[in-house]
């Protein structure tokens, strides 16, 4: 180390000021061996294999449940509006009631998951476009009253005109309710959720449609359930395609969607949804029992998909590789480009 020292006594008697040179640490050479002893060797570097991200503090029952119920409610409202307009009262009533129940359930989940449920109303302090949860709150605020009113009028058969208006309003807001949750989870640093932000709304829309269809199939008479069956089919196919695209685009980050708890749930969801959709188009067209089964399968499928996505996300934030590796790759790519230019 060829440094000349400047350790002269401060002759001027002034109190020392931090000198312009500073302490130098030993040069660190290349490190041959990998991580710390006893921590299994990893193919990337991390801090004792600990996650970079904090564990998402949401419980799956509440939040995955909320994703499912929100989707169900929103899509059901839209379906209900359509059924209403087309004069399929049973289907419409079932969908409205379903939407209202799902809405209630989703609100319960949402509030239940808060660390301070009593402060739920603080959500209304602000209107934040940057926060999908804030937007969601306002969307739900706009959606809740008409959806509730629609259900109430449908069940009690009173105030039909108001009911119709509420139904249409809820039906128009419904898709937003069903899909904004995709932005909600994508707007995080959780690798699986964030990286999938392009497809996620479609997965959710599809899954919501499938579940709303499922509910219609399950609850409405076979004769009125045609739109529900079609919706279920479209939803199932959309979801299937979107998930496939998502997995392909995510690359290594898609692993939690295929492996582990998330993977199992995703596969189960896919199986149930597709089976339900196919059954709906076939046996369920005639047989009420089969219809109930198909509807249930669709609902269960949607539920599984949401839980699957939820858990895959958690898994991807627990394992630092999903955070570090893509970022490292991105940096290297940028560097590569930088050095070329």
């Amino acid at each position: 180390m060829s440094r000349t020292s400047q350790t002269d006594v401060r002759l001027d008697g002034t109190r020392d000021l931090r000198p312009d040179r500073e302490a130098i640490t030993r040069p660190g050479g290349p490190r041959a061996r990998g991580e710390r002893l006893m921590v299994p060797k990893a193919d990337f570097r991390s801090y004792y294999g600990r996650p970079v991200l904090q564990p998402t503090p949401w419980s799956d029952h509440d939040i995955a449940g909320y994703l499912f119920l929100g989707g169900l409610a929103g899509a059901s409202s839209t379906l209900a509006a359509a059924a209403d307009l087309m004069g399929r009262p049973h289907l419409a009533r079932a969908a409205k009631a379903g939407a209202a129940c799902a809405l209630g359930g989703s609100l319960y989940c949402l509030i239940h998951d808060l660390g301070r449920p009593a402060r739920f109303l603080n959500m209304l302090r602000v209107f934040k476009v940057t926060s999908p949860m804030s937007m969601g709150t306002w969307i739900l605020s706009a959606y809740g009253p008409p959806a509730g009113l629609a259900a109430l009028t449908a069940v009690t058969c009173r105030f039909p005109r108001a009911g119709r208006a509420a139904t249409v309003t809820a039906g128009l807001i419904g898709p937003a309710v069903a899909t904004y949750t995709a932005a909600l989870i994508s707007d995080t640093a959780v690798p699986v959720w964030h990286d999938a932000y392009r497809e996620m709304p479609f997965v959710f829309a599809g899954s919501a449609a499938a579940s709303a269809g499922g509910l219609g199939i399950l609850a409405a008479p076979v004769t009125e359930a045609g739109p529900a069956r079609s919706l279920a089919l479209i939803g199932a196919l959309t979801e299937y395609t979107a998930v496939r695209r998502m997995e392909r685009r995510l690359g290594m980050v898609a692993r939690p969607l295929k492996k582990g708890r998330g993977g199992v749930l995703m596969r189960l969801g896919k199986a149930l949804t597709l089976t339900g959709a196919v059954a709906a188009q076939t046996v369920a067209r005639r047989d009420r029992t089969a219809a109930v089964a198909a509807g249930a399968a669709l609902l269960a499928g949607a539920l599984c998909t949401r839980f699957g996505i939820f858990h895959a996300g958690l898994q991807s934030s627990r394992d630092p590789r999903y955070t570090v590796q893509p970022q490292r790759a991105r940096l290297e790519k940028a560097e590569g480009e930088g050095s070329r230019s």
Binding site: M1, S5, Q6, T7, R18, P19, A23
Partner: peptide, 10 residues
Amino acid sequence: VMEAKARGAV
């Protein structure tokens, strides 16, 4: 000690 180091001490 850090101050000395900053001033070049070993």
